[in-house]
Amino acid sequence: MSCEFSEQKAQQQPAPQVGQVSLANVLTAGPFGACVIDQELNTHCWGKNYMQKDADFDCRLHPDKWGQITEVSIAGQHKPYTCFGRAYAPHDLGKVLANAETHTGVCSILAESKNSLSNIRCWGPEMNTDTPNYKDFVSISGGDRHACGIRYNGDVICWPTTSDAQQTNYNRNWAGKYPRPPAGLKAKAIASTGDAVCAIRKLDDKVVCWGGLQAPLALKAKQISVGGGWPDYSKIGKPKFPAQACAIDMSDHVICWGSGKALNVPDSLTAKSIATYSTGSCAVTLNGKGVCWGEDINLNPDFYVDEKPKGHNLQYVSAAKGAVIFIREDNSVYVYRGYQSIEKPYFIPPPLVKAYTQ
């Protein structure tokens, strides 16, 4: 049996609604892990499941305690210990409407808030759990050490995922720091990377960027993605990949800008989904084909790479650092550039689940 997929236009980004799933956040790739929301609004994550290590107790060696707040004995005393990793969702997370990956964890918009002040919960090792006190967040994005959310009225709120109160000699360069949005900005879509953020304005669909990126003048877009800007942890001094952004404009053409290595967009490329990462970008064409361009990073040992995106049945793509992940038209997850690690059991493989669909 053969199937033919007709061309579909890129969907103009609608203003998200309170209590509804943010389709831009169903599949979210981060620098070390990714998450997908399934048909029942449960979150499934995979990748390098980094966890904090105590001198006397190492969560990573106790998979039976992952995702739990457990009682452990440390130095002869019993105390609560949180075994949340950046690739393993808490057992009590509940139903989720959106996720956003950051350096050491995830921020989730909850279907039913368990906090009387906020409908966002951030979780993972070293994560700042003190989220902004609003219960009407409808979309969210994550960078290296920050997150940004859009409220129902379009207000953009950003915050650090490592707080001033968590500051140590190790994190003093980023604790409490985050890219601050332009005053008065109201948006309908948002995307983050290391330190840079771009948003689509609610009023007129124009793209606005800050934190190291500047949008092309008067660009209007249906979708946006921001990549690069992540620290290169494999090099001494930790230099950053230059930040870059890509958008699908109102005529479905792909436009990229910034200082990164994925600005050479194939001629006249039109797409229905776009994602950019540290050294490249990928798009889903109007007929469901995956197309990627930029500098090849196949030699990076943290990621494995398929020969090329497979099939003509793709509908959505998400990317970060060196990972690129697609959702097929049957809502299954296809990992094109995936996370890998020789560290076991700290590495979690991709789940065999179907992604949420309307």
Rank of each mutant, 00 (worst) to 15 (best):
F5Y: 14
Q12K: 02
V18N: 06
Q20A: 13
L23N: 00
A24M: 06
T28C: 10
G33M: 01
A34H: 00
C35D: 08
V36C: 14
Q39F: 00
E40N: 12
T43E: 02
T43S: 06
W46M: 04
G47M: 08
Q52F: 10
K53H: 01
D56E: 12
D64Y: 01
W66A: 05
W66L: 01
G67F: 05
A75M: 12
G76L: 13
K79E: 05
C83S: 03
R86S: 13
Y88H: 09
G94V: 04
A100S: 07
T102C: 13
H103E: 15
H103F: 14
G105E: 08
C107M: 04
S108G: 11
A111W: 06
S113W: 09
N115W: 05
S118Q: 00
W123E: 00
T129A: 13
D130P: 05
D130L: 07
T131D: 02
Y134T: 10
D136C: 15
D136W: 07
S139K: 03
I140F: 09
G142Y: 08
G143C: 07
D144W: 15
D144N: 11
H146S: 03
A147F: 12
I150V: 14
W159D: 15
W159S: 06
P160G: 11
D164W: 05
A165C: 06
N169H: 11
Y170A: 14
N171Y: 04
R172S: 10
N173T: 15
K177A: 12
Y178D: 00
K186Y: 02
D195S: 15
I200M: 05
R201V: 08
D204F: 06
D205S: 06
W210E: 01
A218P: 01
D232V: 07
K238C: 04
A245N: 09
C246E: 01
I248Y: 02
S251Q: 12
V254E: 02
G260H: 05
N264K: 11
L269V: 08
A271K: 08
T276A: 03
Y277S: 14
T279I: 00
T279N: 14
G280H: 03
N287H: 15
V291L: 12
C292I: 01
D296S: 14
D296V: 06
I297W: 03
I297N: 05
I297D: 02
N298F: 11
N300Y: 00
K308F: 00
K308E: 13
L314C: 02
A319M: 12
K321N: 15
G322S: 03
A323L: 03
R328C: 02
Q340N: 04
Y346Q: 10
I348C: 06
P350E: 11
T357R: 13
